[in-house]
Amino acid sequence: MKKLWHLMEFGLAKVVLGIIAVAPPGFTLAFAESVGWLVFHLLPGRAKIATDNIRAAGIVRGEPELRRLGCRCFQSLTRMVAETVITRNRIRPDNWQNYVTIDAPPETFAQLKDTSRGAIIASGHLGNWDVAARALSMLRPVSVIYRPFNNPYLDREINSERGGTNLHLISKYKTNPMRFMKLLADGDCLALMIDQHISEAGERVRVNFFGRPCWATRSVAMMHMTTRLPLFVAVAARTGRLKFTAHLAGPIRWERTGNREADVLGITQAMTDEIEKIARRYPEQYLWGHRRWRE
Protein backbone atom coordinates (compact mmCIF):
# COMPACT_ATOMS: atom_id res chain seq x y z
CA MET A 1 0.00 0.00 0.00
CA LYS A 2 2.84 2.28 0.91
CA LYS A 3 4.59 1.50 -2.39
CA LEU A 4 1.40 2.26 -4.30
CA TRP A 5 1.06 5.60 -2.53
CA HIS A 6 4.69 6.39 -3.28
CA LEU A 7 4.20 5.54 -6.93
CA MET A 8 1.13 7.77 -7.09
CA GLU A 9 3.05 10.65 -5.54
CA PHE A 10 5.85 10.02 -7.99
CA GLY A 11 3.47 9.98 -10.93
CA LEU A 12 1.89 13.26 -9.86
CA ALA A 13 5.31 14.85 -9.40
CA LYS A 14 6.39 13.71 -12.88
CA VAL A 15 3.31 15.31 -14.39
CA VAL A 16 3.85 18.57 -12.52
CA LEU A 17 7.56 18.70 -13.33
CA GLY A 18 6.83 17.95 -16.97
CA ILE A 19 4.35 20.81 -17.15
CA ILE A 20 6.77 23.19 -15.46
CA ALA A 21 9.49 22.24 -17.94
CA VAL A 22 7.42 23.21 -20.99
CA ALA A 23 5.03 25.89 -19.80
CA PRO A 24 5.92 29.59 -20.06
CA PRO A 25 7.77 30.66 -16.91
CA GLY A 26 5.34 33.46 -16.13
CA PHE A 27 2.41 31.05 -16.14
CA THR A 28 4.32 28.46 -14.12
CA LEU A 29 5.37 30.89 -11.43
CA ALA A 30 1.86 32.28 -11.09
CA PHE A 31 0.47 28.75 -10.93
CA ALA A 32 3.01 27.80 -8.29
CA GLU A 33 1.98 30.76 -6.15
CA SER A 34 -1.66 29.73 -6.54
CA VAL A 35 -0.77 26.29 -5.26
CA GLY A 36 0.94 27.89 -2.28
CA TRP A 37 -2.18 29.92 -1.59
CA LEU A 38 -4.28 26.77 -1.74
CA VAL A 39 -1.98 24.80 0.53
CA PHE A 40 -2.06 27.58 3.14
CA HIS A 41 -5.85 27.61 3.12
CA LEU A 42 -6.37 23.85 2.87
CA LEU A 43 -3.91 22.90 5.60
CA PRO A 44 -4.99 24.98 8.60
CA GLY A 45 -2.74 23.06 10.96
CA ARG A 46 0.38 23.89 8.99
CA ALA A 47 -0.88 27.44 8.41
CA LYS A 48 -1.27 27.85 12.16
CA ILE A 49 2.33 26.76 12.74
CA ALA A 50 3.44 29.51 10.38
CA THR A 51 1.24 32.24 11.86
CA ASP A 52 2.12 31.22 15.43
CA ASN A 53 5.84 31.38 14.57
CA ILE A 54 5.46 34.76 12.88
CA ARG A 55 3.48 36.10 15.82
CA ALA A 56 6.09 34.89 18.32
CA ALA A 57 8.87 36.41 16.21
CA GLY A 58 7.21 39.80 16.62
CA ILE A 59 7.62 40.71 12.99
CA VAL A 60 4.07 41.84 12.30
CA ARG A 61 1.00 42.56 14.37
CA GLY A 62 -2.65 41.81 13.87
CA GLU A 63 -4.32 38.70 12.57
CA PRO A 64 -4.83 39.89 8.97
CA GLU A 65 -1.16 40.75 8.61
CA LEU A 66 -0.14 37.47 10.22
CA ARG A 67 -2.23 35.50 7.76
CA ARG A 68 -1.02 37.56 4.83
CA LEU A 69 2.61 36.90 5.71
CA GLY A 70 1.88 33.26 6.46
CA CYS A 71 0.27 32.79 3.07
CA ARG A 72 3.14 34.60 1.34
CA CYS A 73 5.69 32.25 2.87
CA PHE A 74 3.76 29.22 1.57
CA GLN A 75 3.65 30.83 -1.85
CA SER A 76 7.36 31.52 -1.65
CA LEU A 77 8.02 27.82 -1.05
CA THR A 78 5.90 26.59 -3.96
CA ARG A 79 7.35 29.29 -6.17
CA MET A 80 10.80 28.08 -5.19
CA VAL A 81 10.03 24.61 -6.54
CA ALA A 82 8.97 26.06 -9.88
CA GLU A 83 12.00 28.37 -10.04
CA THR A 84 14.36 25.47 -9.38
CA VAL A 85 12.93 23.44 -12.25
CA ILE A 86 12.77 26.40 -14.64
CA THR A 87 16.36 27.48 -14.00
CA ARG A 88 17.86 24.01 -13.92
CA ASN A 89 18.89 24.05 -17.56
CA ARG A 90 19.06 27.82 -17.91
CA ILE A 91 21.80 28.68 -15.45
CA ARG A 92 25.23 28.10 -17.03
CA PRO A 93 28.79 29.13 -16.20
CA ASP A 94 28.58 31.98 -18.72
CA ASN A 95 25.29 33.44 -17.57
CA TRP A 96 24.70 32.66 -13.88
CA GLN A 97 25.17 36.33 -13.00
CA ASN A 98 22.04 37.11 -15.01
CA TYR A 99 20.13 35.24 -12.36
CA VAL A 100 22.11 35.60 -9.13
CA THR A 101 23.74 38.73 -7.73
CA ILE A 102 26.30 38.31 -4.98
CA ASP A 103 25.96 40.64 -2.02
CA ALA A 104 29.30 40.32 -0.24
CA PRO A 105 32.57 42.17 0.20
CA PRO A 106 34.85 41.33 -2.76
CA GLU A 107 37.38 39.61 -0.52
CA THR A 108 34.66 37.37 0.97
CA PHE A 109 33.50 36.29 -2.47
CA ALA A 110 37.10 35.78 -3.59
CA GLN A 111 37.69 33.45 -0.66
CA LEU A 112 34.51 31.52 -1.41
CA LYS A 113 35.68 31.01 -5.00
CA ASP A 114 39.08 29.76 -3.90
CA THR A 115 39.12 26.12 -4.98
CA SER A 116 42.52 25.36 -3.50
CA ARG A 117 40.79 24.23 -0.33
CA GLY A 118 37.38 23.11 0.80
CA ALA A 119 34.80 25.43 2.30
CA ILE A 120 31.71 25.07 4.44
CA ILE A 121 28.52 26.99 3.78
CA ALA A 122 25.69 27.29 6.26
CA SER A 123 22.36 28.37 4.87
CA GLY A 124 18.73 28.77 5.80
CA HIS A 125 15.32 28.11 4.30
CA LEU A 126 14.69 31.47 2.70
CA GLY A 127 14.09 32.50 -0.89
CA ASN A 128 15.59 29.91 -3.19
CA TRP A 129 18.46 27.99 -1.66
CA ASP A 130 18.62 25.59 -4.62
CA VAL A 131 19.25 28.30 -7.20
CA ALA A 132 21.97 29.76 -4.97
CA ALA A 133 23.69 26.37 -4.77
CA ARG A 134 23.44 25.94 -8.52
CA ALA A 135 24.96 29.35 -9.15
CA LEU A 136 27.83 28.58 -6.80
CA SER A 137 28.38 25.24 -8.54
CA MET A 138 29.22 27.24 -11.66
CA LEU A 139 32.33 28.42 -9.78
CA ARG A 140 33.38 25.29 -7.84
CA PRO A 141 32.05 21.82 -6.94
CA VAL A 142 29.27 22.00 -4.39
CA SER A 143 27.91 19.16 -2.29
CA VAL A 144 24.67 19.82 -0.50
CA ILE A 145 23.70 17.71 2.50
CA TYR A 146 19.98 17.16 2.54
CA ARG A 147 17.27 15.17 4.22
CA PRO A 148 15.84 12.67 1.73
CA PHE A 149 12.14 12.42 1.02
CA ASN A 150 10.43 9.44 2.60
CA ASN A 151 9.27 8.46 -0.89
CA PRO A 152 12.36 6.94 -2.62
CA TYR A 153 10.94 7.44 -6.14
CA LEU A 154 10.17 11.07 -5.44
CA ASP A 155 13.54 11.53 -3.81
CA ARG A 156 15.37 10.27 -6.86
CA GLU A 157 13.27 12.38 -9.22
CA ILE A 158 13.51 15.62 -7.23
CA ASN A 159 17.24 15.18 -6.82
CA SER A 160 17.73 14.79 -10.54
CA GLU A 161 16.08 18.21 -10.85
CA ARG A 162 18.08 19.72 -8.01
CA GLY A 163 21.49 18.27 -8.91
CA GLY A 164 23.87 19.17 -11.72
CA THR A 165 27.32 18.63 -13.20
CA ASN A 166 29.13 20.23 -10.30
CA LEU A 167 26.25 20.09 -7.85
CA HIS A 168 25.77 16.95 -5.81
CA LEU A 169 23.14 16.12 -3.24
CA ILE A 170 24.32 13.94 -0.37
CA SER A 171 21.85 12.27 1.95
CA LYS A 172 22.50 13.05 5.60
CA TYR A 173 21.79 9.39 6.26
CA LYS A 174 24.67 7.97 4.20
CA THR A 175 26.57 5.60 6.43
CA ASN A 176 30.25 6.46 5.83
CA PRO A 177 31.15 8.82 8.70
CA MET A 178 34.10 10.29 6.80
CA ARG A 179 32.14 11.17 3.68
CA PHE A 180 31.82 14.89 4.46
CA MET A 181 35.49 15.16 5.40
CA LYS A 182 36.46 13.50 2.10
CA LEU A 183 34.44 16.00 0.13
CA LEU A 184 36.10 18.88 1.96
CA ALA A 185 39.53 17.33 1.50
CA ASP A 186 38.81 17.14 -2.24
CA GLY A 187 38.19 20.90 -2.26
CA ASP A 188 34.41 20.74 -2.44
CA CYS A 189 32.17 23.35 -0.97
CA LEU A 190 29.93 21.59 1.53
CA ALA A 191 26.56 23.26 2.07
CA LEU A 192 24.19 22.54 4.92
CA MET A 193 20.99 24.03 6.26
CA ILE A 194 21.25 25.01 9.88
CA ASP A 195 17.78 26.34 10.67
CA GLN A 196 15.90 23.10 11.22
CA HIS A 197 14.99 21.52 14.51
CA ILE A 198 17.32 18.72 15.59
CA SER A 199 15.87 15.96 17.73
CA GLU A 200 18.94 13.90 18.58
CA ALA A 201 20.48 14.99 21.86
CA GLY A 202 24.13 14.46 20.92
CA GLU A 203 23.81 16.32 17.64
CA ARG A 204 22.41 19.64 18.74
CA VAL A 205 23.06 22.91 20.52
CA ARG A 206 20.57 25.39 21.98
CA VAL A 207 20.59 28.76 20.23
CA ASN A 208 18.36 31.81 20.13
CA PHE A 209 16.44 32.56 16.97
CA PHE A 210 14.09 35.53 16.85
CA GLY A 211 14.44 35.83 20.60
CA ARG A 212 13.37 32.25 21.39
CA PRO A 213 15.48 29.21 22.19
CA CYS A 214 15.56 26.37 19.69
CA TRP A 215 17.78 23.46 18.76
CA ALA A 216 20.27 23.65 15.91
CA THR A 217 22.78 21.20 14.51
CA ARG A 218 26.23 21.29 16.08
CA SER A 219 27.73 19.53 13.05
CA VAL A 220 28.70 22.69 11.16
CA ALA A 221 30.53 24.18 14.11
CA MET A 222 32.33 20.89 14.78
CA MET A 223 33.20 20.55 11.10
CA HIS A 224 34.70 24.03 11.08
CA MET A 225 36.69 23.49 14.29
CA THR A 226 37.99 20.09 13.18
CA THR A 227 38.93 21.00 9.61
CA ARG A 228 39.77 24.68 10.15
CA LEU A 229 38.27 25.36 6.74
CA PRO A 230 36.54 28.70 6.10
CA LEU A 231 32.91 28.84 7.10
CA PHE A 232 30.45 31.09 5.27
CA VAL A 233 26.79 31.88 5.78
CA ALA A 234 24.86 32.31 2.54
CA VAL A 235 21.17 33.01 2.08
CA ALA A 236 19.57 33.70 -1.32
CA ALA A 237 16.57 36.00 -1.45
CA ARG A 238 14.29 36.46 -4.42
CA THR A 239 14.52 39.99 -5.79
CA GLY A 240 12.55 39.69 -9.01
CA ARG A 241 11.27 37.21 -11.53
CA LEU A 242 14.02 34.57 -11.70
CA LYS A 243 16.35 37.05 -10.03
CA PHE A 244 18.05 36.37 -6.73
CA THR A 245 20.54 38.00 -4.42
CA ALA A 246 22.87 35.73 -2.48
CA HIS A 247 23.75 37.44 0.79
CA LEU A 248 27.12 36.13 1.85
CA ALA A 249 28.81 36.60 5.21
CA GLY A 250 32.14 35.37 6.51
CA PRO A 251 34.38 33.61 6.50
CA ILE A 252 34.12 32.69 10.14
CA ARG A 253 37.50 31.54 11.42
CA TRP A 254 36.89 30.57 15.01
CA GLU A 255 39.82 30.25 17.39
CA ARG A 256 39.26 27.44 19.87
CA THR A 257 38.94 28.65 23.46
CA GLY A 258 39.46 25.22 24.98
CA ASN A 259 35.77 24.93 25.86
CA ARG A 260 34.30 22.82 23.06
CA GLU A 261 30.63 23.36 23.83
CA ALA A 262 31.06 27.10 24.34
CA ASP A 263 32.80 27.26 20.96
CA VAL A 264 30.07 25.19 19.30
CA LEU A 265 27.48 27.55 20.75
CA GLY A 266 29.42 30.65 19.72
CA ILE A 267 29.84 29.54 16.12
CA THR A 268 26.29 28.24 15.73
CA GLN A 269 24.78 31.35 17.31
CA ALA A 270 26.83 33.58 14.99
CA MET A 271 25.51 31.68 11.96
CA THR A 272 21.96 31.73 13.31
CA ASP A 273 22.14 35.48 13.91
CA GLU A 274 23.15 35.98 10.29
CA ILE A 275 20.19 33.98 9.02
CA GLU A 276 17.85 35.86 11.32
CA LYS A 277 19.16 39.15 9.97
CA ILE A 278 18.26 38.15 6.40
CA ALA A 279 14.95 36.59 7.42
CA ARG A 280 13.96 39.88 9.09
CA ARG A 281 14.73 41.64 5.84
CA TYR A 282 12.67 39.20 3.72
CA PRO A 283 10.14 37.67 6.16
CA GLU A 284 7.68 36.66 3.42
CA GLN A 285 10.36 34.37 1.95
CA TYR A 286 11.23 32.50 5.13
CA LEU A 287 9.97 28.99 5.88
CA TRP A 288 7.78 29.85 8.88
CA GLY A 289 5.72 26.69 8.50
CA HIS A 290 8.43 24.52 10.06
CA ARG A 291 8.13 23.60 13.75
CA ARG A 292 11.43 25.28 14.53
CA TRP A 293 10.96 26.11 18.18
CA ARG A 294 10.54 22.79 19.99
CA GLU A 295 11.71 21.49 23.33
Partner: peptide, 24 residues
Amino acid sequence: SISILDFMYDVEDHFKVQTEVADL
Protein backbone atom coordinates in the same frame (compact mmCIF):
# COMPACT_ATOMS: atom_id res chain seq x y z
CA SER B 1 29.31 11.97 10.90
CA ILE B 2 29.16 14.05 14.10
CA SER B 3 30.77 11.67 16.59
CA ILE B 4 33.74 11.27 14.22
CA LEU B 5 34.23 15.04 14.44
CA ASP B 6 34.06 14.93 18.23
CA PHE B 7 36.57 12.12 18.17
CA MET B 8 38.98 14.09 15.97
CA TYR B 9 38.58 17.05 18.31
CA ASP B 10 39.36 14.79 21.29
CA VAL B 11 42.48 13.49 19.54
CA GLU B 12 43.79 17.01 18.95
CA ASP B 13 42.88 18.11 22.45
CA HIS B 14 44.31 15.07 24.21
CA PHE B 15 47.52 14.64 22.25
CA LYS B 16 48.05 18.38 21.68
CA VAL B 17 48.43 17.95 17.93
CA GLN B 18 46.84 19.68 14.97
CA THR B 19 45.46 17.33 12.35
CA GLU B 20 44.90 18.07 8.69
CA VAL B 21 41.71 16.96 7.00
CA ALA B 22 43.69 15.81 3.97
CA ASP B 23 45.63 13.44 6.24
CA LEU B 24 42.61 12.23 8.17
